Computed example of a mutant assay.
Amino acid sequence: MTSETAGPKPPNNLAPQQPGMPKVNKVTAEDITASLKAGFSDFLARPVISGFFGLFYAVFGILFVWCLVWLGKIWMIIPAAIAFPLVAPFACAGLYEMSRRLQKEESFGWSDILTVMANQRKREMGWMAFVTLFVLWIWFYQFRIVLVIVLQDSSFSDLDGFFNTVLFTTEGWTFLAIGTCSGAVLSAVLFTVTVVAMPMLLDRDIDFVTAILTSVRVVTENPMVMLSWAAIITATMLLSLVPAFMGLIFTLPILGHATWHLYQRAVSPAEE
């Protein structure tokens, strides 16, 4: 004799419900323009805190270049200058948090923003740091290999000698061409995996693999728009280095705030 429970039986072949990947939206040039305007508005809303992040990044850049010259590592200045904008997403973590709170009309102070990275220690921001550092390590390593192969007989005893060799010799032009191509590839890879992954990890309790895959999908589904955004970031950051890094006091926070708003437009909100 068998007993039956009331109600329909669930199918035996039902798999456990898996959380879906975040939905990626189509973005346009108008989204970039709107994000830049929103980023500038966030900067004006709290200019002192925003400018602090830009100032900190600029001072770090000045000290880093000074250390390279002091240590006699003149050859590292070019790869460091190219890599400098690539680590900006970490410097912008506090800016993402500011934009998030401004968007939700939440109050905040210095401690709330300056401790945002420390508050991520139990989440997966550290893995994103590892991914970034790994790509940068590859960049410096291959740059050194190209340097040795192409400019093996050149002397870099001082800064003027290095730039004269690189800018005014045939070997230097070859070196720049190869380095530019390889640097562009690695920069594209790093941009693709981090452009929305960083603000997304700050915004949602997700794993870094999901964040990376979402970032890749945003770029692959909106290639021309995201390529334009990458070009804007790169050109603005490099131009900001010219006046002794001081341009970063303004450009870094505006771009950081704008990146948050572009992420909001590129990825649909998480379902509650």
Rank of each mutant, 00 (worst) to 15 (best):
N25Q: 08
P89D: 01
G51W: 02
Y141K: 14
V87H: 12
V24I: 10
V59R: 01
A91Q: 13
N25V: 02
I32E: 02
L227F: 14
R217Q: 14
T115M: 15
F53M: 08
G172K: 00
F43Y: 14
E106H: 10
I149V: 14
Y57W: 14
D42V: 07
C92T: 13
D205R: 01
V59C: 02
T2I: 12
F143D: 13
T5F: 15
A244R: 06
P16V: 08
L136H: 04
Q120M: 15
E221S: 15
L248Q: 08
V65F: 11
C67P: 00
M98P: 04
K26W: 06
A6H: 13
P269G: 00
L239N: 08
L241T: 08
G109R: 05
F143R: 06
L86S: 05
S215V: 03
A188H: 03
D42C: 10
A129Q: 12
P16A: 10
M200D: 06
A231S: 07
I145N: 09
L238E: 01
P253T: 02
M76C: 05
Q142V: 14
F163E: 00
P19R: 13
T165M: 04
F175G: 01
V27G: 03
V242H: 05
G39T: 04
V185L: 15
W66Q: 12
A211I: 07
L262Y: 05
L238P: 00
A230S: 09
L248H: 11
N119F: 15
S268V: 02
I113Q: 04
I249N: 04
F130A: 13
A88N: 07
M198V: 12
G256S: 05
M226Y: 09
G39N: 03
I113H: 05
R123H: 12
P19G: 07
C181V: 15
D112Q: 14
A34V: 11
A266H: 06
A29P: 00
G109D: 11
M98R: 05
S228F: 13
K9C: 11
F64L: 14
N13G: 03
F53R: 04
I113E: 04
E4W: 13
A34N: 15
F162L: 06
S187I: 12
V219K: 03
C181N: 11
R46Y: 15
L136V: 06
L71M: 12
R121K: 15
A211F: 06
S35R: 04
F60N: 08
G126V: 06
F56D: 06
A93D: 01
L176A: 04
A244I: 11
R144E: 13
D160P: 00
K122S: 13
W139A: 14
P269N: 00
